[in-house]
Structure formats: structure tokens, C-alpha cells
């Protein structure tokens, strides 16, 4: 099979890789770029463990062909932390204990981050819950995750408050 050239940016670093066109975005990130923070938990676009941001939107990395993001900007969990400083959502996850086994956490964080970027002031808790409905978690029962997102939305992690 003829490999295709894929040019994209992952966590602000440019990559040029040759992939079989059937390669999924999550495979490109894990196997070609070598970032394993993004997980895979199903084969049916159900669990959301592979969620990454594509041009700022939360997208499931297993539901997209890598070739479809040619020229786009990808952010993975590894890209949340900047200069050794955690993103507020990461700190909130730590403060609220919003993870247990941690396998869904990367995807959760990316969904949460994309949601907060888009909706800095969610109107109620249900809006947050609905934003997270594409991500499965078997350990936490979601509530701690919702509390963490809510805390960020309420501004508890703004720099002036820290």
C-alpha cells in the first residue's frame, strides 16, 4: 500500500510522517509520534479514551483517519502542561481526585479542556455532564471529574486566585 505524507502539528511541534492511509489518528499519535498518553479503550468510538483536540475541538482519535487532519493542530494530554506548569484542569483533577486508574484520564482532560475553552461559563452542572458524555470512566463515577471542571469554570484556578 502506498504510504502518504502527513504533515501536522502535535503539541506545537511540526511532524512529517509517512503513513498507510488507513492509519487512525490515535495510531499516528501513539505509534508514529510516540506519545502514549492518549489511550485506546474500544474499537467502536464509544469510550473516548483517545480524545484529543483537533484545531481546538475535542475529537475521538479512533474515529478519524490520520490523513484527515493533514495540516491541522493536534493537542494531546502531553501538550496541556506548559513550561513545567500544569494546566488548571490538570490541577483541578488532582485536587478533586478526578481519576483512579487513570486510563480514561487523558481523554477526560482533553474533553474537559476543549469544553472549557468553548464554554468558559457553563450554565449548569448538566451542561458539563453532557459535555463529558462521550468519555467512559469505570472507576470514579464521574462526579469528581464534574466537580473538577466546575471548579475551573468557577474561576478557582485563575492565576490571580492561586
Amino acid at each position: 500500500m502506498e504510504k502518504k505524507l502527513l504533515r501536522f502539528t502535535v503539541n506545537e511541534a511540526p511532524y512529517e510522517i509517512y503513513v498507510n492511509p488507513k492509519t487512525l489518528l490515535v495510531e499516528a499519535i501513539r505509534d508514529h509520534v510516540g506519545l502514549t498518553g492518549t489511550k485506546r479503550g474500544c474499537e467502536t468510538v464509544s469510550c473516548g479514551a483517545c480524545t484529543v483536540m483537533v484545531d481546538g475541538m475535542a475529537v475521538k482519535g479512533c474515529s478519524v483517519l490520520a490523513m484527515q487532519v493533514d495540516g491541522m493542530k493536534i493537542t494531546t494530554v502531553e501538550g496541556l502542561e506548559k513550561n513545567g506548569k500544569l494546566d488548571p484542569i490538570q490541577t483541578a483533577f488532582l485536587d478533586e481526585g478526578a481519576f483512579q486508574c487513570g486510563f480514561c484520564t487523558s481523554g477526560m482532560l482533553m474533553s474537559a479542556k476543549a469544553f472549557l475553552d468553548e464554554t468558559p461559563k457553563p450554565k449548569d452542572e448538566m451542561e458539563i455532564r453532557r459535555a463529558m458524555e462521550g468519555n467512559l470512566c469505570r472507576c470514579t463515577g464521574y462526579n469528581a471529574i464534574i466537580r473538577a471542571i466546575d471548579a475551573v469554570a468557577k474561576g478557582n484556578y485563575r492565576e490571580d486566585k492561586q
Partner: peptide
């Protein structure tokens, strides 16, 4: 649309 799958799916 609000009830169609998840945000990730609706985004793409």
C-alpha cells in the same frame, strides 16, 4: 443534535 452521540462525534 444535542442528543446525537457525544460532542466529539458531533464535532467531526
Amino acid at each position: 443534535e444535542h442528543k446525537l452521540a457525544s460532542i466529539q462525534v458531533r464535532n467531526w
